[in-house]
Design a protein around this nucleic acid. Sequence first.
DNA 1: CGTGATTACGGTTGACGTAATCATA
DNA 2: TATGATTACGTCAACCGTAATCACG
Lengths: 296, 296
Amino acid sequence: MDPHLLRTFVAVARCGSFSEAARELGYTQSAVSQHIAALESDLGAVLLRRRPVSATAVGTRLLEHAGPLLLRLDAARADIARLTAAPASRIVIGASPLAMTPQLTGTLADMRQTQPLLGVTVRVLGREAITHKVATAALDLGLVDGMAAPNDPLHLPDVGPLTALAVTEQPLAVALPAQHPLAGRTSLRLTDLADARWIDAPDTAIPLAQLRTAGGTDGYRASLRYEGTDVRGLVVLSATGHGLALLPQPTIDGIPGISAVLISAPRLIHRTEVLHSNAVDGPPALLAAALLAATQ
Amino acid sequence: MDPHLLRTFVAVARCGSFSEAARELGYTQSAVSQHIAALESDLGAVLLRRRPVSATAVGTRLLEHAGPLLLRLDAARADIARLTAAPASRIVIGASPLAMTPQLTGTLADMRQTQPLLGVTVRVLGREAITHKVATAALDLGLVDGMAAPNDPLHLPDVGPLTALAVTEQPLAVALPAQHPLAGRTSLRLTDLADARWIDAPDTAIPLAQLRTAGGTDGYRASLRYEGTDVRGLVVLSATGHGLALLPQPTIDGIPGISAVLISAPRLIHRTEVLHSNAVDGPPALLAAALLAATQ
DNA sequence: CGTGATTACGGTTGACGTAATCATA
DNA sequence: TATGATTACGTCAACCGTAATCACG
């Protein structure tokens, strides 16, 4: 189970073609064929059906292992490189849309005044992408938001020794169109909305899959899938009755046409965390410390 | 970053000796030396100090990556082998001490009546060991307990695509000696006990480290460390005033000399989960389903 | 000095490319 | 028949062992 072979395997499975994967990896068709043959003989199972190429049951299972494995391997490489290399003067921050609160951007502004030469890039991404990219050093710092029980850490994929620190906890609210029958309420139980129509915006609002897990039901059906990372667009959709969305209360409060109704049960909050490789020094760690200090 | 090299590296770091690691791995001293040299040149950093052998800062960091990485690699191997091999008639169950409730052992007894030929082994272990061993197929089924927010899954190390299903949720209680001033209370806030003396029994009761995380304080100091997996021994220690322990309420209720005082805040419960490789058939999956069905 | 890590060197193995062959849409 | 996977084979590098060397206690 050489990582090279695994890498080839995932490439072939993704491309659906030996030759295409070979091109992508800079190998010959033959080498790819030999890689797959080596893996299959090593594991004693057929991993791929050929012509057309598709993963068998065993192959599919192996893919579930291979992804995280290769990610962690890249993360380890990148982490060691980060320790070895000199600290950069440029810093790239990845943030999920709801993590971009005025509170956080404010402290970032303060930070820049003390270190004006620091080149800063902010990149808005989905939550999983941020975790992966922080681990593999494609980002210096991550700001991730999500839903959790009070004082509970977010459930982030385990991609290596990263430091996650809570920055904010805000109440959760449903974005209801102003004319919605429940719009007048001050609070609601989440389960009361299990049969409503929701907008599934996994990279922006709380993913519906998470609501189902938290509620233990298979409700929270999606009327619309929203791909992308723009909060305003989601709010506009919600205001015009396309469906509900679960968001931090301050984000939706005061927006015309929308009523923010707090979730009273189960006890869940919206949480933002800073994510970085747990180096003690360097601009990312300093900035993380500043964000943490500013919000406590 | 060949896994072979990583494996050699962790062996050397653990043994504190190239020659000892060579013996353990079945290599020559020379091969081990070459492995370490290859790793160091690949990563461009010195990983080990020699004479005596100890890990450098970079080496220590690499060790943090290498452990989980190699574990996942073993898990992937074992998982594929499990899919390929015929289902065994023997089943090995790993359980953390507090997961061994009459409720669970009862359903296991029922199960044996329907499948009397099934050879069953029960092995009591620490939580981490169970997760690792289920992932690497050293166990067919795991019963793990822990502390969590209501309806929240346990925070288990991510060692691959395992299925974790909730079996029980029980209230948490502190085991107080009967003569303790707070023993008469029906419930307590956990933070009120932050300055008390605790027994740190990470493999039996709730680990104190977790209490600190949940409470956000660095209290809950240990007066005694209890290694091992025997609940009765822990209770005896607690009854004779050696320190407090956090346990599921039913476990301590009714034991003479001990008062079980419920935890009212923060909202935390004791949860038990069944853990198994998510195969759909075979004895482990059937047993997991039976356990789940019996407790809902 | 002696134990233990490193370096030198050789044999074997394994990996990849070229090219021929096979199989399937 | 054409595209694309497999097999055959040659070359080259990588790996590990033997043995000599080096270095620290």
